[in-house]
Simulated scan of single mutants.
Amino acid sequence: MITEAYRNTFAGVLDWVDLAKNNGLYSYEQPFDSAPLATSSLDGRMVTMLTTSNYLGLAGHPEIIAAMKAALDQYGPSACGARLNNGTTSLHLQLEQELAEWMGTESALLFSSGYMANLGAISALCDSDTVIITDQFNHMSILDGCRLAEGSVKIFAHNSMEKLEYVLKRQAGAAKKFVVVDGVYSMDGEIAPLDEIHSLTEQYGALLMVDEAHGVGVLGDTGCGAFEHLGARPDVVMGTFSKSLAGVGGFIAASADVIQFVRHSAHAYLFNASPPAVTIAGVLKALELLRAEPERQEKLWVNTAQFRAGLLNLGLEVMGSVTPVVPIHIGDDMTALRMTKEMLDDGLYVAAAIFPAVPKGSSRLRATVTAAMDDEDIDRALDILGSAAKRHGIIG
């Protein structure tokens, strides 16, 4: 029964959703009709894509599609079981081996999503004797993993090494200390100072886990992520397939002991359906292309520099971003929603990030740059963004 207590709980979300829909400003869950390339089909028209995590432009790649079709013919659409039962194929084992080799670890473990990888690894590795130390701006999947774990949670101010060291010192007597951070912060585009964090975790005897969801394929000489870019070596690396690798799923890479423990302890692995072989085949091919074609990563960074420079020339605030995740500060939630709808009408898709996805008063347009874009795509995006920002008084 939906009681008054439930209605009061729902009100905080439903009120703003209803307000946005009633004013024609609700632009979430748009029904696209094609792959998320530089331009995509939406309701029969082409729009420039400025919010997609297809960083390397591999979504829709013909070799990936061919690999997936072949796997579909051989393995079917689903294993219909969990990994420890009948849900493991030779493709799963091959991908885990290749990921471990790429990440420079002894072993790796696949999950059905990046969210589940964080949930499963953190909750398995952090028992009641563990103090979990986490950055205040970590992704929600990390926060949910911390909530599910039995350990006590300590939060330090975003990217503050002084605060992190203070917490580590205060917890010196803890039996186990577990530090978990994002490599690239998905709403801000900042990179965590992983070299400094790694040094502190080594000094104070803490295990370090890094979420490289937005670092894989983007940072590092071989595309391993922010830890490679900064020369750090975390104990556990988490990554996703749904961004640079144009697939679905996630993984952790670590020592053989850590992986074996998580394999037999993480509920998100034990009691979850296996990622289908057709998906794994696509990720294997995407990983092959990522490693064989470093020019994709180079093009991504050329485009990122061009786009960020264009925003700064317009007078827009990019909130300290140094990666292809480029937030554009707006401030007011409804203004961000209005701008998103107007720009979509003009042929540009860029998502609005509002509370509770970001702190109150810090709503933003969350732009992401990809290697699939060319100069014309970037110029078009900047023109539409500049016009919308002027209309709403964001810039003069």
Rank of each mutant, 00 (worst) to 15 (best):
N159C: 13
L84R: 14
A172Y: 08
I132K: 03
E150W: 03
S141Y: 08
R83A: 11
L84D: 10
A71R: 01
L72V: 01
G114E: 10
K163M: 12
S78V: 11
I122F: 03
S152V: 13
E106G: 05
N159W: 02
G76D: 06
G87H: 09
S112E: 07
A124S: 14
N138G: 10
Y166T: 13
E96M: 07
M140W: 00
Q97K: 14
W102C: 00
S78H: 07
T134D: 00
T89F: 03
Q171C: 15
V167C: 05
R83P: 10
G76H: 07
R170F: 05
M103N: 05
D127T: 05
L119H: 06
L99E: 01
Q94S: 13
I142D: 05
Y166N: 12
H139P: 00
A71F: 06
A82Q: 11
G120N: 03
C80W: 13
I122G: 09
G81Y: 09
C146N: 15
G114T: 02
Q171T: 13
A108V: 01
T134I: 14
Y115C: 12
G114R: 00
K154Q: 13
G173C: 03
N85V: 12
S123N: 09
A149Q: 07
K169Q: 13
V167K: 04
M161V: 12
P77F: 11
Y166H: 14
R147K: 14
Y115H: 14
C126Q: 06
E101K: 08
L119M: 10
E106K: 02
Q171L: 07
C126Y: 08
D144G: 10
A149D: 06
L93T: 14
A149F: 02
S152P: 00
C80Q: 13
L119N: 09
L148F: 06
S78E: 15
E101Y: 02
N86D: 15
A124I: 02
V167F: 11
D129Y: 07
I155W: 02
A71L: 08
N138C: 15
E101I: 01
Q136R: 09
